[in-house]
Structures are given as C-alpha cells and as structure tokens.
Design a protein around this nucleic acid. Structure first.
Ligand SMILES: [Zn+2]
Ligand SMILES: [Zn+2]
Ligand SMILES: [Zn+2]
Ligand SMILES: [Zn+2]
Lengths: 163, 163
DNA sequence: CGGAAAAGGTAATATTATAACATTCAATGC
DNA sequence: GCATTGAATGTTATAATATTACCTTTTCCG
C-alpha cells in the first residue's frame, strides 16, 4: 500500500459524496426501494465526512437544514439505509457511517481513529476467513460479524495531537 | 474439537463461579487492586450464567439480594472489573460478561448465540493476526479490537426454538 | 491519630433508541 | 380520474443505557 486510504488524506470529498449518492440511487432503483428525499438527505449528511455520526448528530444537522424532524425519522431513515447496504452501524460508537462498498456482497471491518474519528472500512477476506474458521471450530453458525478496531490512523500518528 | 465448549452444554456451573471468583481474588491481590464486597458481588452475579448481562439487569439482581444500589454503583464496579481484565463489555449487546481468560494477556473474540444468548469467548490467534495484518496494511495502529459474532450456538442449532 | 486517596451513596441528567398512534403520500387497479 | 391500500412520515411519549456532580464513608499510610 503506497498511498493512504481516502479518509486519511485530503481529497475531493465532493466527489465522494456525489459518487455515494449516485450509487445509492442506482442501487435503490435496482432493488425497487424508494430513496425518498428524507432518506437521501440523511445519506447525504452521513457522507459529509468519513466520520461516523450519531443519530442525534444527524438530527441536529437536519434541523440546521430546516428539516425539523424527531428521532424516529432519523432512525427509520437509517434502518432503511442499513437494509439497502448503504450505511453501517458502528456499534462501539453508537454511530453510523456511509458504506464504501455499497452493492458488493461484503462484511466490513472498521478502523476507527480515536483521535480524528475518521473510519476506514475494509473488506479483508483473511479477516472474514479467520473469523469464519474460528466460529466453525466451535460448531457455531455465524450470521453476522462485527469487527471494529480502535486506534490511530496514519495521519494522526504523525501530527501528534494525542497521547 | 470433539466436545462442545462450556456454555453450550450442561456442566457444574458452581465450579465455574467458584473458579472465577478464586482467580479474581488471586489476580487482584497480585495487582494490589481491591476486590471489595460490592465488586465481588457484581462479579459473582455476572458469573451466574454464561450470558452477557446488562448493567440494569445486574442492578435488579443486586436489589433482589438486598443491595439497593443506583446505576453508578454498578457501572463503577464494572469499570473496575474491566480494568482488572475480569469482565468484558459486549458492545453489540450493551452487556457484560465474565472473562474466561482472566490473567492471560489476550484480546477476545465473542460468539454470541442470538437464541439462548450464551456467549463463548475465544482467543484465536489467527483472528488477532488477520486483524493486525489488515490494520498494518493501512498503516493503522490498532490499540483495541472488537470482534463479535452473532449466530447460533451448536445447542440451539439442534433444538430448533429459533428463526 | 490525622491527612489523603479510594470507594461508595445519592440525585439529577445526558444519550441512545423505540413504541404507539395519527396522518400523508404514492403506486395500483378499476 | 379516483378509490383502495400499503408504505412512509409526523408526533408524542417513553424506554434503556450511561454519566455527572457532589457528598459521605472507608481504607491506607505515615
Ligand atoms: Zn460496507
Ligand atoms: Zn486520525
Ligand atoms: Zn477475556
Ligand atoms: Zn444458543
């Protein structure tokens, strides 16, 4: 790996957002799922950064955009986006993140920087395999796997604003 | 693996509890940490089963034992027990579990049965390795790793009270 | 003993998430 | 077009999880 992954370097983030929204529209059309304005707005807000955002963060952002919504609105939108594979819930943060592998059949692993809070989603087959093997060794039928790594991203290791 | 792991079969669970409490006393003594009555009581309650228990479950159990405590009491005991490596937090359940590898330097993986809620803690080196390698590939410094697998334990696969 | 630090008690509150029910919207068949 | 109907959204209240702040008690150590 020569270059840092996207969240860790400055990049044309507008392009990230545009791409994510375009992919979402395509996917939802293909799945006969309705990407309504509220849902699209929440998705767009999530993609404002590569950080995971809490439901109430999103709620506040909606409010700033003049969409006075209550918690169920945001949770319902998030449920929909998760079902469509457009958003992941980061369980150790109680927060939500745009999926960078939408449409691909995948089970993500998440590298969470405790300093800048950016999250990188990986889909390392070795990890999935190792977890699958360990489960199988115990005769356990794995249905869903959460892999979340907390640590320091490459950018934050250098710019020492942390421990 | 010929025999099922402990949580999945009937066993002398009193022995589990006694062992866990004995280990805890030894460890805390070795670390100059005070395993006070409240802390020990919470640990004992956690070990009543191989399931993960919520803080408010523990609070209710304390109440049943006549220890009328408020939330901070239980959260403080849990913080202590986690710092001593005697208890793990299962983030996807917001619940807590007695560690079956107390004293060993380890980073656990958890197999969570969605039917019976029993949790098996593994310490598979291949999993830790795969995650470590995937992180390193992104120049990410991993400090803590959460691996939680939701699925069906061997016992529940047979006795079809689920889906 | 006396001071300091750790542990625990208590009340209030913050944060995250859901339940229950009413209303609006949009696709479909006639 | 228009009624039917299920999906989506609005609205209010509340549940479930966790923390803050402050005070009292206990333990440790000199
Ligand atoms: Zn993804
Ligand atoms: Zn960072
Ligand atoms: Zn453990
Ligand atoms: Zn089970």
């Amino acid at each position: 790996m020569s270059a840092s992954a996207l969240p860790y370097r400055t990049h044309n983030h507008s392009a990230c957002i545009r791409q994510a929204l375009a992919d979402a529209r395509t996917l939802c059309r293909a799945n006969n799922a309705r990407l309504t304005p509220t849902r699209e707005q929440v998705l767009e807000l999530i993609w404002r950064s590569h950080k995971a955002l809490g439901a109430y963060d999103l709620l506040a952002m909606l409010a700033e955009e003049g969409h006075r919504a209550a918690p169920p609105t945001v949770y319902r939108a998030l449920d929909f986006l998760q079902r469509q594979g457009l958003v992941h819930r980061i369980t150790s943060l109680n927060a939500f993140l745009g999926c960078t592998h939408a449409g691909e059949q995948h089970c993500g692993q998440f590298l969470i920087c405790r300093n800048c809070r950016n999250v990188l989603e990986l889909t390392a087959p070795e990890v999935a395999l190792a977890v699958g093997q360990a489960s199988a060794d115990e005769a356990f039928v794995a249905e869903d796997t959460v892999v979340e790594v907390i640590g320091l991203c490459p950018a934050c290791q250098l710019s020492g604003n942390h421990d």
